Simulated scan of single mutants.
Amino acid sequence: MLIEQRRLLAGSTQLALRPNGLYVCQRNRNGCPTLEFEMPYEEVLPVRVIRHRSTPQLSWVPLTVLWISMNVLQRLLPTSGPMSNAAWLGLFGLSGLLLAGYLYGQRNWWKHVTLGTARANITLADRPAERASVDKFTRVLEQRTKDYLRNEYATINPLGVIELQLNRLQWLRRLDVLSESEVRVLATRLTGRLDSPPLRSMGQVLETPYLN
């Protein structure tokens, strides 16, 4: 799966899911890579999405833009006589241009979405038309990472070093790759012991019984 976002005069950002990790590439407006790396899936979780705004929503900006436009035109036009149709057209054209720039900034410069991982944060413009694709990419990334970790690290070998494998199972549990019951079953297969409260008899703690 791949997602790519282009920004005016700021280049592009590309994210892709590869067999062994998350690929990230940022390019400048000339297409030359400025940042490129592949993050292994072992370093991705937990995945989170954070949306934020870099500037406050200023409801008075459109009126301010209109006022500035009128003052600029008054300085450029003759002081006597009514304004011609061309002057009015220029006024509305300049106001529309400034408002369009303000709205473009609202959509592409001031609203951001950050895709956070354990090792890096990737920030994109939070465009309404792209929110669904970003959210879907995040869900697929999390599921792909968990599937990869489960296939690579959830397999146990009773003939191997048991302590290292138990630590690995706890690591997978902390990342929510395995459930508590799955970890308990796999640990029992490794050690041959039930994960249960210690047995007591006549005031003494007995050794946990082994399973055949």
Score class of each variant (00 low, 15 high):
29 R>Q: 07
29 R>W: 13
29 R>M: 13
31 G>E: 09
32 C>D: 11
34 T>W: 01
34 T>Q: 08
35 L>A: 10
37 F>L: 03
38 E>G: 01
39 M>H: 03
39 M>D: 02
40 P>Q: 06
40 P>S: 05
41 Y>E: 03
41 Y>M: 08
41 Y>A: 02
41 Y>F: 14
43 E>N: 09
44 V>A: 11
44 V>F: 05
45 L>H: 00
47 V>R: 07
49 V>Q: 03
50 I>D: 14
50 I>G: 03
50 I>K: 12
52 H>S: 15
53 R>T: 05
53 R>L: 06
53 R>N: 07
54 S>N: 13
55 T>R: 15
56 P>D: 09
56 P>Y: 11
57 Q>W: 12
57 Q>H: 12
58 L>T: 05
58 L>Q: 15
59 S>Y: 07
59 S>C: 05
59 S>T: 08
60 W>Q: 15
61 V>M: 08
62 P>D: 11
63 L>A: 15
63 L>T: 09
64 T>H: 12
65 V>M: 14
66 L>I: 09
66 L>G: 10
67 W>A: 15
67 W>D: 07
68 I>L: 13
70 M>Y: 13
70 M>R: 12
70 M>T: 10
70 M>F: 14
71 N>S: 15
71 N>K: 12
72 V>I: 14
73 L>D: 04
74 Q>L: 15
75 R>E: 09
75 R>M: 11
76 L>S: 07
76 L>P: 01
77 L>Q: 11
77 L>I: 10
77 L>T: 04
78 P>D: 03
79 T>F: 02
79 T>Q: 11
80 S>M: 04
81 G>Y: 04
82 P>D: 10
82 P>A: 10
83 M>E: 09
85 N>G: 06
86 A>T: 09
87 A>N: 06
89 L>Y: 11
89 L>W: 12
90 G>P: 01
92 F>E: 09
93 G>K: 05
93 G>P: 00
96 G>N: 12
96 G>W: 14
97 L>M: 11
97 L>S: 06
98 L>S: 07
98 L>D: 06
99 L>A: 10
100 A>V: 00
100 A>M: 09
100 A>F: 11
100 A>N: 03
101 G>Q: 11
101 G>N: 09
102 Y>I: 10
103 L>S: 05
103 L>P: 00
104 Y>I: 03
105 G>M: 08
107 R>H: 02
107 R>M: 07
108 N>L: 05
109 W>G: 00
109 W>F: 07
109 W>E: 09
110 W>I: 10
110 W>Q: 09
111 K>C: 14
111 K>D: 08
112 H>S: 03
113 V>H: 00
115 L>Q: 00
117 T>D: 05
117 T>E: 03
119 R>M: 09
119 R>I: 10
122 I>L: 00
123 T>E: 05
124 L>Y: 01
125 A>E: 10
126 D>F: 00
126 D>S: 01
128 P>S: 06
128 P>T: 05
128 P>L: 08
129 A>P: 00
129 A>V: 07
129 A>F: 10
132 A>W: 01
133 S>M: 09
134 V>F: 01
134 V>W: 04
135 D>C: 02
135 D>F: 02
136 K>G: 06
137 F>S: 04
139 R>T: 10
140 V>N: 08
140 V>F: 01
141 L>S: 04
142 E>P: 01
142 E>R: 06
144 R>T: 14
144 R>H: 13
144 R>W: 07
145 T>V: 05
149 L>G: 07
149 L>F: 03
150 R>F: 15
150 R>S: 14
150 R>H: 15
153 Y>Q: 02
153 Y>S: 02
153 Y>T: 04
